[in-house]
């Protein structure tokens, strides 16, 4: 064990940790705003990565059909709501956002050959396909039971997770995929080689975290989300729609997930079911932050990444055991230091 190995393991741990940190932030955000423990968070990682790789292979990704299908279901639900409340004027807008936009996207993808597009366009198309799915899932699965208990919302999360895993297998097949790297650069630091792609992951994660910070501090929607997280009823009295906040937080979670997937797809093989484990490690980070504190959750996620990297060197067979055992002392410490408030029955 010399310095070079420590450096390489550290670099590897921080790269995975950066991704876990992004997911931990998304989990904290969703939980704070909607009280949903968002188990399917990881699926967006897999969907983002595999959608991009389908595009690069010149295939129409299955997520497009999912988007169209969910869009139609949301339109149906929203229009029947509008009819019942005599708000006919909303119908064209509902149709445009939920059916028109996905169909335009499908038309565009059918018209061009996606494999020949420049990489940034492929990434943009991937995000355009995967991100709205987050909001649509909120509308269909969570909004009707938004006032239910945390346990009920958790059970729905498990159901959504299982459904998305099944769809992932159907869309992308059982075997994994990789995407072409964004950069082939590598840097020489002492004896260690630093891959440009891993630097990109860390930098992009940092940029996203800073962007999220400004979003929450400086924009009206970000502030509305924060207000809802602090006090749902109070926020509603101030005219902030809980439904809007829910959709927005899920859309952000999907954006973070899909973006993480796009980032890591060139450095590792992603499978239709990879997301769950990645999301789970983000969840360990979020738990360290008590599902409430963003900075502690991010730091916890980096810790998980480092722990994973070093334990894979010392005891590879027990890597997952070590990572997930971490949660027990953390839970103990949290339950000893914080007063438990009984949730509504």
């Amino acid at each position: 064990m010399d310095l070079q190995i420590v450096l390489l393991l550290g670099q590897d741990g921080i790269t995975s940790g950066a991704i876990y940190a992004l997911l931990a932030l998304a989990l904290v955000l969703v939980f704070a705003v909607t009280r949903v423990i968002f188990i399917p968070q990881g699926e967006f990682v897999a969907f983002g990565a595999l959608t991009l790789s389908s595009l690069q292979a010149g295939k129409l990704p299955g997520t497009l059909w999912l988007l169209i299908g969910l869009g139609a279901a949301v339109a149906f639900a929203d229009i029947s709501w509008a009819l019942r409340h005599h708000k006919m004027r909303r119908v064209p807008l509902i149709l445009f956002y939920n059916c028109g936009v996905p169909i335009l996207l499908a038309g565009y993808l059918l018209a061009v050959s996606p494999a020949t597009l420049p990489q940034p366009v492929q990434v943009a198309l991937t995000l355009a396909m995967v991100v709205p799915i987050g909001a649509m899932i909120y509308r269909l699965a969570y909004q009707p039971i938004a006032e239910a208990s945390v346990l009920m919302l958790l059970i729905v999360s498990v159901a959504v997770h299982v459904a998305l895993i099944g769809l992932g297998l159907l869309f992308f097949g059982a075997e994994g995929s990789r995407t072409t790297p964004f950069t082939d650069m590598s840097f020489q630091i002492g004896d260690a080689v630093l891959q440009g792609q891993t630097v990109l992951v860390v930098v992009a994660s940092l940029v996203l975290i800073v962007a999220l910070y400004f979003y929450f501090e400086r924009t009206i929607y970000g502030k509305a989300l924060r207000a809802t997280a602090m006090n749902r009823t109070g926020a509603r009295l101030m005219g902030i729609s809980a439904n809007l906040a829910g959709r927005l937080s899920f859309m952000l979670a999907a954006l973070i997930g899909a973006f993480s997937g796009v980032l890591i797809a060139p450095i590792t093989t992603i499978y239709y079911d990879s997301g769950f484990l990645i999301g789970l490690k983000g969840f360990v980070g979020a738990i360290i932050g008590g599902l409430a504190s963003y900075p502690i959750a991010a730091a916890g996620a980096i810790l998980v990444g480092l722990l994973e990297s070093f334990s894979s060197f010392y005891a590879s067979a027990f890597k997952e055991v070590i990572v997930f055992t971490l949660i027990i002392p953390v839970l103990l410490w949290r339950s000893l230091t914080s007063r438990h408030v009984e949730e509504e029955e």
Partner: peptide
Amino acid sequence: NERYNRPDTSVTGQVLKILS
């Protein structure tokens, strides 16, 4: 003699040990 999990995203630790 190293192990890794099917969905692992990184095997850097194991690979470094093998290389050494």
